[in-house]
């Protein structure tokens, strides 16, 4: 949209390339082995899905912390459906899983738009609640590979032209959501709502409906990620996906989605997710224990928001000083007499 935003995506992509090059130099299996290449694409895929949904929500000046619990619940539900109803075909189960995610997102969206309570609080609550439901349902059970059909599990491992199917799905979602937010009428309205909610109402935008849909979108993508989680890891316990919500927020923020809405792109959020997942894999190769990964994430989040702020302040200052030219241009009038001491 603007050069500044585009620059964020290029800089993230650049950082990613440098990281891959450095890691590959340290150990060429990082990229050049068949597994290395696959992991490079596969590792971030689920996080990309969550980050895309998160970006849509944050752009409307909201946040969805419940995505990790939605992912966990859907993953377990998907596995359970295979166990309890072996008659259902794989696509039907997958569809039901995704719909469950959409429904959970709709609960978030409904509560946020109807109660006028910040989404942070609502989704904090549903983060607990959805996870709790999963835990009650699963107990100590876990779904394992034997419980799920081979054709389903194949989705998690298969490749097309050397590219993992899961990564292709993520790519399709990024492109689809990118086109929607970038070029659909309703998608552009997400930006307007997040940019200036008061103006959005004065413009007659259906703010509530759009925000609701953003949450449904986020839930749907978390549901999709849950289904793919089950297929890829082949085992699902009640703690599936715990903690991913912060990584999803981090990915979006690092990718240039402003935490207070209105700007950023899906592609940026996706790149942020890829960067995070790649850092995770690269650290051990660079001789840093991967325990430090989270600290790096923290530094990146803080760095990204500080950078955004510094840029904004600089813009504001520049505008103020160009304003001088206007305000201080020579007056058409002579100074009027007065009692200045």
């Amino acid at each position: 949209m603007t050069r500044v935003l585009r620059r964020r995506e290029t800089s993230i992509a650049l950082a990613l390339v440098i990281l891959v090059v450095v890691a590959t130099t340290a150990n060429d299996a990082f990229l050049l082995s068949s597994d290395g290449f696959r992991d490079l694409l596969l590792a971030p895929s689920l996080l990309v899905l969550l980050a895309v949904g998160q970006a849509a929500v944050i752009i409307t000046r909201n946040v969805d912390l419940s995505v990790s619990s939605t992912l966990g619940l859907v993953a377990f539900a998907t596995g359970s459906m295979f166990v309890s109803s072996p008659g259902l075909s794989v696509p039907v189960v997958m569809l039901l899983g995704i719909l469950l995610g959409a429904a959970l997102g709709a609960v978030n969206g409904g509560l946020v738009t109807s109660a006028r309570v910040p989404s942070l609080v609502i989704t904090l609550g549903t983060l607990y609640a959805y996870r709790g439901i999963t835990v009650i349902w699963a107990g100590t059970d876990r779904i394992s590979a034997g419980d799920m059909p081979r054709s389903f599990l194949a989705i998690g491992t298969e490749r097309v032209l050397g590219i993992p199917v899961v990564a292709l799905v993520a790519l399709v979602v990024v492109v689809g959501a990118g086109v929607y937010l970038g070029y659909a009428r309703t998608g552009r309205e997400f930006y307007a709502i997040g940019s200036e909610p008061v103006a959005a109402r004065l413009c007659g935008l259906p703010v509530g409906r759009r925000v609701f849909f953003a949450f449904v979108l986020s839930g749907t993508l978390a549901g999709l990620a849950g289904v793919l989680f089950a297929a890829r890891y082949a085992t699902v316990a009640s703690n599936a996906g715990t903690g991913l919500e912060l990584q999803a927020v981090a990915a979006a923020v690092i990718g240039g989605v402003a935490i207070f809405g209105g700007s950023g792109t899906v592609a940026g959020a996706a790149l942020g997710a890829v960067l995070l997942a790649t850092i995770d894999r690269a650290l051990p190769i660079l001789g840093i224990p991967d325990f430090w990964q989270q600290a790096v994430v923290g530094v990146l989040i803080i760095g990204a928001i500080v950078l955004d702020r510094v840029l904004a302040v600089r813009t504001a200052r520049r505008l103020r000083s160009t304003g001088v030219a206007e305000a201080v241009r020579p007056l058409p009038a002579a100074r009027v007499t007065g009692g200045v001491p």
Partner: peptide, 9 residues
Amino acid sequence: IGTLALFRG
């Protein structure tokens, strides 16, 4: 949220 990740990290 950033320092949550940082301190835990």
